[in-house]
Design a binder for these strands. Structure first.
Length: 885
DNA sequence: TGCCAGCGGGG
DNA sequence: GTGTACGCTGGCA
């Protein structure tokens, strides 16, 4: 039987471990395969006789057998005699390991912290999404809900297709009260379920804990009955994937706790013995596990995506915000505050919540499927062997460790354990002593560069290339360099030695070469592939391969890594620094150009001609010639040309990229480190900053840009800016009364409550939009609900917006342009606060603000308008204090 | 510049 | 389950 692996675990029965594979066969039929007779083991180095004696005396019943082996360890050419200790029960391993660690005659322990499922999969050269061929006999068992077989033999097979994944999205609506929402005191009102393929003729169902009916709505006498039906439906639909929006942190923990309280059987995994199991880890993180199924939370996945793909970055990540951004589609308009009222209302009222609830699941499912969020994770699973659930839950570490375990073992190397606390402390101490130096960043001269185009060059995959070229690996670093011929070693700029690859390939460089080879092969296939589905998969695959090859440098310098060697991390960056510095001086000498900025692996070079075509030619020429000098493993790529380039400081710049297209030239603005897509900036800020940059970069007309800003300031003052652009957002996190410090959004809630005491529950609409209105007193007290401001024709505080929203991001830009900020305001004395603030540099008499009561000094006026001690705040100058306006 | 505290999504 | 665990940002020293 052929099977593609989705999940794997084990059970321990009558002194036997049974490994279980959950997966699907080539007919998409869910299967569970049992494999008996594989046992856990780990390795120990030390006094073999004493170790054996100790184990016999203390753990006789736990030990299956002990063997002697010859294995390689970290560092070059270290071969040792080790004991391989087999146990009966995987769950005993950690206790025995910890006992052994205490013994003086034990030198080191290896691979004693590898999850049993990975131990098994590694030894059978399989992993997540592998296809396996199993020689099997059918078996009957009540322990598993899907078809089961006993596997006698498991073999990896190469198969290119993927099974299709059945997906179920769900969403809860719960009751809540003044203290928020809590499974102890609140109940589940309804659950929506949306199916990726029809279930009993329905695309979706909503279960309601009230006697009510409707299309695809099922009502129940009680919450308990509803939850029992939920379990039945999940089991009957039998999804591979369960999804929803923020289900890891809300719906699952709430659901499981309600099931506990009501005594509902929590078995909706594919195993009949294991409850769905939900655990709070850390302060704000829950993890749920369902044996045989995979939980893929749309919210979690979007948040992960955003890190890799900055294009996906949003200001907020509510389901409504994300749906709007992706599908131009909104949630059904029901605010939390309405739910209790609707729930106790008419049938139509309840059905309104039902449809609201249903749509949330629909959207969560659409996000997962239409945005194809799983593709990349599935490819990462295939590349590394990590199970999909572990890829989704974990980060880089689990992926790398699964991959390297296999690679180490197949070369007769042992993988060290994760460091224990004392080892980590030792590493930290050493790092503090020696220091870990990062990449080279050239201090730029701030300003606008638009006289000549800027050529951008960067090292292709710099750190992987360095690892490759100099054979940098924990298995090639040399402990006693004096014992080896200098010609056989690479010496890194910080003076560490690695055996050359001509003598012995390092494992990490080997893995990297393999990943890169697979990637170029994949990209080559992509060029001729026409099928869109296949193309998408290939794209995800090459991306996964790239992600993996970029992870190794970080992993080797990661303090809790199994492969942490400080000299390695330092060697890699030192090679990088020396390479980029060499290239910089080389380019400047050979081509008579200026490198105006450089960071880690990229260089910005001012062209020597303002002809675009000639600039492209020069970029190409530099790339080819310098790469040739750098040798075959290192490539300096010609990345792009900026027609103009505006840099404020290290890692903060914006450029106008120019590229050739069929119709002429194409332009695109790129920003680094100066984005204002943040929730504490109002939209006017981002908008005006973008337009300012636009004028500067495209037209190079500083005056026009300043005039534009002047226009914005004028609009603000005359009240011509739509209030929507001025909204600032903050979250309410606790009971209003427990806020000690006066804050704008809290004050807004108080005002709203006062105006509308009947409907007080809306204070749990946690995100509060507000604007600052004109008037006297504290800014916080002048914060108002935008709707109220509109209805009552209130004026907004333009000076607040100028000072706190518009100017801060603009100030740096103006000073980089060498513009005195007074140019923005002319000699208009009406705006005296502004002119003082903005002439900070030209009039050094201004020093800041000071509290006249306690003399505490401030750089800026505190938001609450007075000092923490309650004292009044005045301007502080060289000549003393001055009243603020 | 580096550390610490707090927050996010959900109802 | 040989599992013990997020990641950013603003405020502040």
């Amino acid at each position: 039987m052929l099977l593609q692996i989705l999940d794997c675990d084990y059970v321990y029965l009558n002194n036997k471990t049974i490994v279980r594979f959950f997966g699907k066969n080539e007919h998409n039929e869910p299967i569970c395969a049992f494999y008996e007779g594989y046992y856990p083991y780990f390795y120990v180095i030390g006094d073999n006789e004493k170790i054996t004696k100790f184990l016999e005396q203390n753990f006789k019943n736990d030990i299956l057998k002990i063997e002697e082996k010859e294995k390689y360890l970290l560092f070059y050419n270290i071969k040792r005699n080790v004991l391989k200790i087999y146990l009966f029960d995987p769950s005993k391993t950690s206790a025995i390991r910890d006992e052994l660690r205490k013994l003086s005659f034990i030198e080191d322990i290896f691979e004693a912290d590898i999850l049993f499922k990975y131990r098994f999969m590694c030894d059978h050269d399989i992993g997540g999404f592998s296809w396996i061929n199993i020689k099997c006999v059918p078996t009957r068992t009540s322990t598993v809900k899907v078809k089961t077989v006993n596997a006698l033999k498991i073999e990896k097979v190469n198969e290119n297709k993927d099974i299709s994944l059945k997906t179920l999205a769900f969403d809860l609506e719960t009751s809540f009260d003044d203290s928020g929402v809590d499974p102890e005191n609140n109940e589940i009102l309804m659950i929506s379920l949306v199916f990726s393929e029809k279930f009993n003729g329905s695309d979706s169902l909503v279960l309601v804990s009230k006697r009510i009916g409707g299309k695809d709505v099922i009502g129940f006498e009680s919450e308990k009955q509803m939850l029992e039906k939920f379990v039945d439906i999940v089991n009957e639909f039998d999804p591979d994937i369960m999804t929803g929006y923020n289900i890891q942190n809300f719906d699952f923990p709430f659901l499981i706790q309600r099931m506990d309280i009501l005594g509902v059987c929590k078995k909706f995994g594919r195993c009949n013995r294991k409850n769905v199991f939900c655990m709070k880890i850390g302060s704000n993180i829950n993890r749920t596990s369902i044996s045989g199924r995979i939980i893929a939370d749309s919210y979690d996945m979007i948040r992960k995506e955003e890190k890799i793909n900055p294009k996906m970055r949003l200001k907020r990540y509510g389901l409504g915000d994300v749906s709007l951004a992706f599908f131009n589609e909104t949630k059904i308009d029901v605010s939390y505050s309405q739910i209790p009222k609707l729930w106790n209302g008419s049938k139509e009222d309840i059905l309104k919540i039902v449809e609201y609830c249903r749509k949330d699941s629909v959207l969560a499912l659409r996000i997962l499927l239409e945005k194809r969020l799983l593709d990349k994770h599935i490819e990462l699973s295939k590349i590394t062997g990590t199970l999909l659930q572990d890829i989704l839950n974990g980060g880089e570490t689990i992926r790398i460790e699964t991959l390297i375990l296999k690679e180490f073992n197949s070369r007769n190397f042992l993988l060290p354990c994760k460091p224990i606390k004392s080892e980590i402390d030792k590493r930290i101490e050493q790092r503090n002593k020696v220091g870990l130096k990062g990449a080279f960043v050239l201090e730029p001269k701030p300003g606008l560069y638009n006289k000549y185009p800027i050529i951008v060059l960067d090292f292709h995959a710099m750190y992987p290339s360095i690892i490759n070229k100099f054979n940098i690996c924990p298995t090639t670093i040399i402990k006693n360099p004096e014992k080896y011929d200098k010609n056989d070693m690479n010496e890194s700029p910080i003076g560490a030695f690695f055996i050359k690859k001509e003598i012995k390939n390092g494992i990490i460089p080997d893995i990297l070469r393999n990943l890169l080879k697979q990637r170029s092969k994949t990209k080559k296939i992509m060029r001729t592939e026409k099928n869109e589905e296949v193309l998408r998969r290939l794209y995800s695959k090459q991306l996964g391969l790239k992600i993996m090859s970029n992870s190794f440098y970080g992993y080797m310098g990661f303090i809790v890594s199994r492969l942490y060697v400080m000299d390695i991390a330092n060697s890699i960056t030192s090679y990088g620094r020396s390479m980029i510095k060499d290239v910089k001086s080389d380019v400047e000498k050979r081509y008579d150009v200026n490198v105006i900025y450089a960071d880690t692996d990229s260089l910005m070079i001012e062209s020597n001609s303002n002809d675009i075509d000639k600039t492209f030619e020069l970029g190409e020429k530099i790339s080819v010639e310098i790469s040739k000098d750098l040798g075959e493993d290192i490539l300096l790529e010609f990345e792009k040309v900026f027609k103009s380039f505006f840099i404020l400081a290290k890692k903060r710049y914006s450029g106008l990229e120019i590229s050739k297209s069929d119709t002429g030239f194409k332009y695109k603005i790129e920003m680094k480190g100066i984005e204002t897509v943040r929730r504490d900036w109002c939209n006017l800020t981002s908008e005006s900053q973008n337009e300012f940059l636009n004028i500067i970069l495209k037209e190079g007309n500083i005056k026009k840009a300043i005039n534009y800003i002047k226009g914005v300031l004028l609009d603000l003052k005359s009240g011509n800016v739509p209030i929507e652009k001025l909204i600032i957002t903050k979250g309410i996190t606790k009971k209003i009364l427990s806020y000690k410090v006066i804050q704008p959004h809290v004050e807004v809630v108080k005002k709203m409550q006062m105006r509308n005491p009947v409907d007080s529950s809306f204070m749990y609409d946690k995100r509060i939009d507000y604007v600052i209105t004109k008037g006297v007193g504290l800014i916080s007290k002048r914060a108002e609900d935008p709707k109220y401001v509109k209805e009552n024709n209130m004026k907004i505080d333009s000076e607040y917006y100028i000072r706190n929203q518009l100017l801060p991001p603009l100030e740096r830009m103006l000073s980089a342009l060498g513009v005195d900020k007074s140019e923005l305001f002319g000699s208009d004395k009406q705006t005296s606060i502004l002119s003082i603030i903005n002439n900070k540099k030209s009039k050094p008499s201004f020093r800041g603000f000071i509290c006249i009561k306690c003399n505490k000094e401030f750089d800026r006026i505190p938001l609450i308008g007075i000092c923490e001690c309650g004292g009044e705040i005045k301007l502080l100058t060289d000549k003393g204090t001055v009243d603020r306006l």
